[in-house]
Computed example of a mutant assay.
Amino acid sequence: MTERFHTLKEIAELTGLKYWLVLRCANNGLFPTYTVGNKRKRALLSEVLTAI
């Protein structure tokens, strides 16, 4: 089973973190982000949880 990419807003909702904190961590390279199709950054929940 493959893991789904989530927007940073979804990541914030799923983890209970503030959106601005998730965005700051993504911009600082704490976890990898991906651009799929459009310009929105997306991430894998497992990689975010590992970084936390």
Rank of each mutant, 00 (worst) to 15 (best):
T7K: 03
R4L: 00
P32C: 02
T2P: 12
G37D: 14
K18H: 14
T33G: 07
L17Y: 15
A51E: 06
Y34M: 09
L44C: 02
K41D: 09
Y34N: 05
L30C: 10
E10H: 01
N28S: 13
T2A: 12
A51S: 14
A51L: 06
G37R: 15
K18Y: 10
T15M: 02
T35R: 15
C25N: 10
K39T: 14
E3H: 13
K41N: 13
R4E: 09
M1I: 07
T35N: 12
K39F: 05
A43W: 01
E47R: 12
R4F: 01
I11M: 05
T50E: 13
T7Y: 03
P32W: 02
G29E: 03
N38I: 10
V22T: 06
A43P: 02
E47L: 13
R40W: 03
T33K: 06
L14E: 15
R40L: 07
W20A: 03
K39E: 08
A26P: 06
A26M: 05
R24W: 02
P32Q: 06
C25F: 11
W20R: 04
V22I: 15
R4S: 05
I11L: 02
E3C: 10
G37M: 10
K39C: 06
G29L: 05
M1H: 11
L8A: 08
A51M: 10
F5L: 14
K18C: 12
L49E: 14
V22H: 01
K9G: 11
A12F: 08
K39W: 04
L30T: 03
V48K: 01
L30I: 08
W20G: 00
V36I: 15
T33M: 06
F5Y: 06
I52D: 10
F31S: 09
A26L: 00
F5S: 05
L21I: 07
C25E: 09
A12T: 07
T7D: 10
V22Q: 00
R24V: 02
Y19K: 02
R42W: 10
F31D: 06
C25K: 13
V36F: 14
T50R: 12
W20H: 03
L45Y: 14
L8G: 08
C25M: 15
L44N: 05
L49V: 12
K39H: 09
N38D: 14
F31M: 11
T15E: 03
C25S: 08
G16A: 07
R4P: 02
W20C: 00
Y34E: 11
E3R: 13
T50I: 07
K18A: 15
V36W: 12
L21C: 02
R42M: 14
L44H: 09
A26T: 09
S46Y: 11
V22S: 01
T35H: 15
C25D: 10
N38Q: 12
K41M: 12
R24F: 00
E47T: 10
A51N: 03
L23S: 01
E47D: 12
I52C: 11
K18L: 14
R42N: 08
T50N: 10
